[in-house]
Design a protein around this nucleic acid. Structure first.
Length: 478
RNA sequence: CGGGGCGUAGCUCAGUCUGGUAGAGUGCUUGGUUUGGGACCAAGAUGUCGCGUGUUCGAAUCAUGUCGCCCCGACCA
């Protein structure tokens, strides 16, 4: 059978992924190396994802703010581990003026900055600086801030959505009076991320703490939301850090406690990015294109009037009426009255992952019927129902699609997670080409033999198992 | 930054080995027939062959330099 996306997932997963993004019109590579242009349809999905995340963040008592794009190098230099982690991938602003020199526009040597700025790869430092001024008394705590911004990390090998040099994200930064509160906060945000992935993106995640070598630069503990792609590789979709007092000490975030003594605060940071969209694509899509969970679908329903030359106007009007009635129920509906051929419209919206497609033909209109097809199931779900039946059931049907998509992922995860008793078994599975996550006793991975396996099979420790931290999940990753 | 591949029409690519008028498919435009999962016929428009230098009567083709992209590594809270 002909598929909309070539190659297929099984033929070449990474090429399929690139083709999928082009075919569904989400984004394209830009003239700037490592940076992508997110096109209107892709951005519409991101906006829906962002709105729902923002709602949940605010519900956790966090306020939005906005900090500068440029960070003084001296700030960055204050936390040693942090510098070590990020220095290799920072873009630096060194001049503030251009000049025509020998017919070439160049940075004007006379405009060199005495103190260069770096473009934020993350904002712990500049927010830490602000916090040191904003936090004076225990009454100022907790202070919970978030910003939705772009950041830049000069990546060696970019891939659209998964790893781009510039990306959009939210980064939250909270301050507390005690370590207990800070750690609870990091865990709370971690839990919120997991719920969001499940309820909004219909993705079941593997939740847990990062092992020491995978931890954020400057954190005491990092909690991660790991997801399993259809090719079995892991994607880190959101992290939450207990920063201990590393940044509070470096930036002098202190407060007068109830006892009247000056105390050092405790901070957390937590973030999710457009990388989640990469996960959304690689978890749900098939060889015909995107499949969007209704909650983040820009168009939850598309209505395609099947027109002939003589009935175009009446068919389009009838379709618009149904569209209006569905919108009145709070459903995002697109009525595609463009003058493309019907078959082309159908494929266009299949590729773009619209959860529910409605086709209306002339005879159906006379009988007040229409035909619906679910994107997640495809042809087999095609059925003709009455307009009234649709209006009554549309919202429920979208909820059902959302739930069914999650169930598919949960079932697939069961197959893609394998318990292994020892390193020899792990080696054998990987040598045999088994894909997915492997759950291994953590102590065993401290053996040098495990380092060899990591090297041999390009695997890494993804996270400890939340349900039993004496086990660690191991996988190949993006 | 290493190893490999690629750069030719909007897109996918042939042509390069063996130098001699710039090609195909698809898409696009127009007209007609069609229309419930990617239609058909006809006509038409579309190029700095990535860029520079060299060899040559003549370069998409050979040499050399350079830029960019892709894949595999290294790197990646």
């Amino acid at each position: 059978m002909k598929t909309a996306i070539t190659p297929t997932r099984s033929e070449n997963f990474s090429e399929w992924y690139q083709s999928l993004i082009v075919a569904s019109d989400l984004a394209e590579n830009s003239p700037v190396r490592g940076c992508m242009t997110i096109k209107p349809y892709g951005w519409a999905i991101w906006e829906l994802m962002r709105e729902e995340m923002d709602r949940r963040i605010k519900a956790a008592g966090v306020q939005n703010a906005n900090f500068p794009l440029l960070i003084p190098i001296e700030f960055f230099n204050k936390e040693a581990e942090h510098v070590a982690g990020f220095a290799k991938e920072c873009a630096v602003v060194t001049h503030h003026r251009l000049k025509m020199i020998d017919g070439q526009l160049q940075p004007d040597p006379d405009s060199k900055l005495t103190e260069p700025y770096i473009i934020r790869p993350t904002s712990e430092t500049i927010i830490g600086d602000a916090m040191s001024r904003w936090v004076q008394s225990h009454r100022d705590l907790p202070l919970k801030l978030n910003q939705w911004v772009n950041v830049m990390r000069w990546e060696m090998r970019p891939r659209m959505f998964l790893r781009t040099s510039e990306f959009n994200w939210q980064e939250g930064h909270n301050v507390f009076a005690t370590h207990k509160e800070a750690n609870e906060d990091a865990r709370k945000m971690h839990k919120i991320y997991g719920e969001y992935m499940r309820e909004v993106l219909a993705i079941e995640s593997i939740m847990g703490e990062k092992t020491e070598e995978e931890r954020f630069a400057g954190a005491d503990k990092t909690y991660t939301v790991e997801q399993i792609m259809q090719d079995g590789k892991a994607l880190q979709a959101g992290t939450s850090h207990d920063l201990g007092q590393h940044f509070a000490k470096s930036f002098n975030i202190k407060f007068l406690g109830t006892s009247g003594k000056l105390e050092t605060a405790w901070t957390t940071s937590w973030g999710t990015s457009t990388r989640m969209m990469g996960s959304l694509l690689m978890v749900h899509s098939d060889d015909d294109g995107l499949i969007l969970p209704p909650m983040v679908a820009p168009h939850q329903i598309v209505i395609i009037p099947i027109v002939r030359d003589d009935d175009t106007l009446v068919m389009n009007n009838f379709s618009q009426e149904i569209g209006e009635k569905l919108r009145a129920k709070g459903i995002r509906v697109l009525v595609d009255t463009s003058d493309m051929r019907s078959a082309d419209k159908i494929w266009k919206w299949i590729k773009r992952g619209v959860p529910l497609r409605i086709e209306i033909g002339a005879r159906e209109m006379l009988n007040n019927n229409l035909t619906i097809t679910r994107r997640d199931i495809g042809r087999d779900s095609k059925q003709t129902i009455s307009v009234d039946e649709l209006l009554n059931s549309a919202s429920d049907l979208l909820n059902t699609i959302q739930k069914d998509m999650l169930s598919v992922v949960q079932e697939r995860n069961k197959i893609l997670i394998t318990d292994v008793a020892d390193l020899n078994k792990l080696d054998k599975y990987l040598t045999d080409g088994k894909i997915g996550f492997f759950r291994v006793n953590y102590e065993q991975t401290l053996d040098k033999k495990f380092d060899d396996l990591m090297e041999k099979h390009k695997i890494s420790r993804r996270c400890l198992d939340d349900k039993d931290p004496s086990y660690v999940f191991v996988a190949k990753s993006y």
